[in-house]
């Protein structure tokens, strides 16, 4: 009985980590491929300058770099908080 619930707890833990990891990977992929596809398909839009010297392409490129930081940051916050708490609980349950 207890082994069963312990196994289930690990399964839930593993599932939650893969779910978050997959969602964030997809988010990164979408942001990056979106940027690349805009570069490939809509060069005039990317070259449009919002203010003299600052094109939409530059803004979006910098935003993708910031998104990489932000998504990694979100993962760290989640993992250091919720995930590590669940892991700690699981370890304590021997």
């Amino acid at each position: 009985m207890q082994t069963n619930s312990r196994e289930e707890a690990l399964e839930a833990l593993a599932a939650s980590r893969w779910r978050v990891a997959a969602a964030l990977t997809v988010a990164m992929l979408v942001a990056y491929l979106g940027f690349i596809l805009l570069v490939a398909f809509n060069k005039p839009l990317m070259g449009q300058q919002i203010i003299p010297g600052l094109s939409i392409g530059i803004v979006l490129g910098v935003l993708v770099i910031l998104a990489a930081w932000l998504l990694t940051g979100i993962y760290i916050v989640w993992a250091n908080g919720k995930y590590d708490r669940a892991l700690h609980q699981y370890r304590g349950r021997k």
Binding site: T25, M28, A31, Y32, I36, G57, G61, I65
Partner: peptide
């Protein structure tokens, strides 16, 4: 910039997976 972005986006994937 296209290259820079490409070289960077692998890192979040390393973190997550």
């Amino acid at each position: 910039l296209i290259y820079s972005v490409g070289w960077l986006v692998g890192w979040p994937v390393v973190t997550f997976l």
